[in-house]
Amino acid sequence: MEFLLAAVILFLVFVFLTRLLLVLWPGSRHKPGKMGPLSVVAVAGSGGHTTEILRLLGSLSQSYSPMHYIVADSDKMSEDKICLFERSRAKQSSKFEYFIHRIPRSREVQQSWSSSVLTTLHSVLYSLPLTFRLKPDLVLCNGPGTCVPVCASAVLLGILAIKKVIIVYVESICRVETLSFSGWILYYFSDYFIVQWPVLKEKYPKSVYLGRIV
């Protein structure tokens, strides 16, 4: 009986790891236009994170629609910036559609790492049903702690064979020699990991160096 139980557990672990490798393997990527518009989730963070992510989004075409923003529930400043940005885009075209969603903040500024484990798990509980409901084609993020539970939920969508979600991580321009904690985690799970300094490209071979893009 114990041998049978161990065999079942090993089989389930093997299936899980195999599925995880298939999800992370960059073989199912597609470009907008070939399969219609791409639904995008953009994770905004407080301070410079939101400014940088909006600069990136400003260069996207109408093929990336609708746009779903995820912000921490206590981050009113980012929400105001997003609304201002989208109002300016609406003057250019009425085809830009956006929605703002709120989840609990995974980690406050200067919060201890030990206590942030619990708050991150709390954030994951909100991220999972939201991400499963939205089923985005693309998740775009650039470092706020809120992006970790969102990306974890996106990876889980693929593991469960519900949908393959492309994760694009753009490391903040202020990270010159080392990755942020969010970047260090998502370096291993993102489909495209973009850095803005050549030093980081040398240290992290998987990354893509495009120069300063924000």
Rank of each mutant, 00 (worst) to 15 (best):
V176Q: 13
Y169L: 05
L128A: 12
L130S: 06
L22C: 08
I103C: 08
R55A: 13
L118Q: 07
S46K: 10
L125M: 13
S207Q: 07
G183A: 07
S39A: 11
F3L: 13
P26V: 04
K206Y: 06
P136F: 01
L38M: 15
F181G: 04
L57S: 05
Q62Y: 14
M67D: 03
Y64T: 07
V23T: 03
I166S: 08
S39Y: 00
L125W: 11
V15Y: 13
D73K: 14
R102F: 12
H101C: 01
I70C: 04
V109N: 09
S94H: 09
T119W: 11
L56C: 06
Q110N: 14
K203M: 08
L12M: 12
C174N: 05
A6F: 09
P205Q: 08
G36A: 03
H101M: 06
G58Q: 01
H122F: 09
F96A: 08
P205T: 10
E202M: 15
V124M: 15
V195H: 09
T131W: 12
R175Y: 04
Y192F: 14
C147R: 13
V199I: 10
K76Y: 09
V155M: 01
T119P: 04
T146L: 14
S116K: 06
A152K: 09
W25P: 03
G158P: 05
K164P: 07
K203G: 07
V148W: 11
V41M: 10
A154I: 09
C141E: 15
S88R: 15
L210T: 06
I9A: 11
P129R: 07
V23F: 00
I166E: 14
H30F: 14
G145F: 02
R87F: 01
S74Q: 12
W25C: 08
E202Q: 15
K135W: 02
P149S: 05
F16I: 05
L38Y: 06
P149V: 02
G58N: 12
V170Y: 03
V208N: 06
I194M: 05
L156K: 02
P198R: 08
L186K: 08
P198I: 13
